[in-house]
């Protein structure tokens, strides 16, 4: 049962709509036209208001995203999911402002959005730690510090299992002008391949 919901939600995410709910999953299935980062589901100011729950039902929501769900996703997917979570959070805050005594129905929706955002930050943090560890490994191997090289290799082995085959570069083509300021060292990914060959 949960796997069916997860697969349907992953189809919804391909349409760039993050709304985990049980009752109206099929009605919100949309297909995005193209694979650019520009969100095709932008409805303007209407996105601050209307949740699409059926009238009279309790606003149910599924479980939040976990870090294990997000580790295989690219930077583009995490970026889109983050924006959808931001819009969902603004929508919930606006709904809270409208209701009586500022009390949301099903206030756990806010908790689930917050945990999903934390999971995205965890996944980004792991990739950032891996890139920093590779930099430190290159520096320590030049200095000849064998003890630190050994420690860093163990750390890189652990992080490499978590990060997997995802590129460490941001990969947003529309923002290539920012590449100089957030430049990732070209030899980092080569070092990953060298480590994999050694092991």
């Amino acid at each position: 049962m949960n796997n069916m919901i997860r697969s349907s939600i992953s189809n919804i995410i391909k349409g760039a709509t993050y709304t985990q709910r049980f009752a109206s999953t099929s009605t919100t299935t949309q297909v995005a036209s193209g694979s650019t980062i520009i969100n095709n589901n932008k409805r303007g100011l209407k996105d601050f208001f209307e949740h699409t729950y059926p009238i009279g039902t309790y606003p149910l929501a599924g479980r939040s995203w976990a870090a294990s769900d997000l580790r295989g996703k690219s930077f583009n997917d995490l970026h889109e999911l983050w924006f959808e979570l931001l819009k969902e959070r603004n929508k919930l805050l606006t709904e809270k402002e409208i209701t009586k005594n500022n009390q949301l129905q099903n206030p756990q929706r806010v908790t689930k959005v917050r945990k999903s955002m934390a999971a995205i930050k965890v996944v980004l943090g792991e990739r950032d730690q891996l890139s920093k560890s590779l930099y430190l490994l290159a520096k320590a191997s030049q200095d000849g510090n064998h003890k630190k090289v050994k420690e860093l290799k163990e750390n890189i082995k652990r992080l490499n299992k978590l990060v997997g085959a995802v590129s460490l570069k941001p990969g947003l083509k529309e923002l290539e002008s920012l590449q100089d300021t957030i430049k990732v060292d070209e030899t980092l990914e080569k070092n990953i391949d060298l480590l994999l060959k050694q092991n």
């Binding site: 208001f49 983050w82 931001l86 603004n90 805050l93 809270k96 402002e97 980004l124 923002l175 920012l178």
Partner: peptide
């Protein structure tokens, strides 16, 4: 820069 540009954390609540 990556966190602030690509992942903003601003809350906007319509009042």
């Amino acid at each position: 820069l990556m966190n602030s540009v690509f992942f903003p954390n601003i809350k906007l609540q319509v009042i």
